[in-house]
């Protein structure tokens, strides 16, 4: 008796020896929905109560628009700075050995661990015109605290560990032989650095930038103490949401939040696309 031929069937699930696919996928989707998607959806629903024209009105309000500009503009600038300095920190921490290296390595994580309000107070007192650093800056005619410069400083501070920790593992993995090969082929140190060592690190640097940027946009606690919160000048969008909430303008708060959500989403999508491209171009090919 011939057994019926096995008919290939398109299946949702790929055959695998690892059990529990249904259970784990269900669990993942449930958690993701409850923790991430549901609150975001509620936000959008609440904001949509205003209608598209209502949201547009909120977005074009000069105070809101300038707060959004401050939040996203300074975040981008701060993330750029954090990426640059974070890269240098990661480079020094992995490529060289010096006394206290492990201590410095641990210090990098402090902005992760510190409550943001503590960081905010520390930064504010340091950069205030009568503070340790602020005093010196004031002599140079720079006022850091209570201006956009203060926001920038706080955002660099909280973004730095992201930039360091994303590139560090890749710098560790740089193969010494690659550099030696480059040298035997006659390339000088600078050529080796720019053509051989750095290009494979670009995707990781971009990841660090994206994380620092996202953190900067969402940051509240450490900024409000040092920002001075002057409307049209140094007021960040999250603070404006809090202000709207305290005025019981829930619709307005949700509208600003939705706009921030949209801009963040588009920005991160763009960064991801650049990253995918750079990954194809520079690494893991």
């Amino acid at each position: 008796m011939a057994s019926p031929p096995l008919r290939p069937r398109r299946r949702f699930r790929q055959p695998s020896v690892i059990p529990g696919f249904g259970l784990t996928l269900g669990y993942t989707l449930t958690c993701l929905s409850l923790i991430v998607l549901l609150p975001l959806a509620a936000l959008v629903v609440r904001a949509s109560g205003l209608g598209l024209s209502g949201i547009w009105e909120v977005a074009t309000d000069p105070r809101v628009a300038s707060a959004l500009r401050v939040s996203f503009g300074i975040s981008a600038l701060a993330a750029l700075t954090a990426s640059l300095f974070g890269f240098l920190v990661a480079w020094v921490l992995t490529r060289y050995d010096f006394p206290g290296r492990r201590l410095v390595d641990a210090v990098v994580d402090l902005p992760f661990a510190l409550p943001t309000a503590v960081a905010g107070i520390a930064l504010a007192s340091l950069y205030a015109p009568n503070g340790l650093v602020g005093e010196q800056l004031a002599k140079l005619g720079i006022q850091a605290a209570y201006t956009p410069v203060g926001i920038y400083i706080a955002m660099v501070f909280i973004g730095l560990p992201f930039a360091v920790r994303t590139v560090q593992p890749l710098i560790v993995e740089i193969d010494k032989e690659i550099e030696e090969a480059s040298a035997t082929l006659g390339a000088g140190r600078f050529h080796t650095l720019t053509r051989v060592v750095l290009p494979p690190l670009i995707p990781a640097v971009l990841t660090g930038f994206a994380l620092a940027f996202a953190r900067g946009v969402g940051e509240y606690g450490s900024i409000i103490f040092i920002a001075g919160n002057l409307p049209y000048v140094s007021e960040i969008a999250p603070l404006l949401i809090v202000i709207k909430l305290s005025e019981f303008d829930y619709g307005g708060a949700c509208a600003i939040a939705t706009i921030m959500l949209g801009i963040s989403f588009v920005t991160l999508l763009a960064i991801n696309l650049i990253q995918a491209w750079s990954r194809r171009r520079f690494g893991y090919v």
């Binding site: 193969d175 690659i178 030696e180 090969a181 893991y284």
Partner: peptide, 15 residues
């Protein structure tokens, strides 16, 4: 030195 060096694990530039 103008030497050509070939490593055991190739050391090609992956990118």
């Amino acid at each position: 030195r103008a030497v050509g060096f070939v490593f055991q694990h190739y050391a090609l530039f992956k990118h």
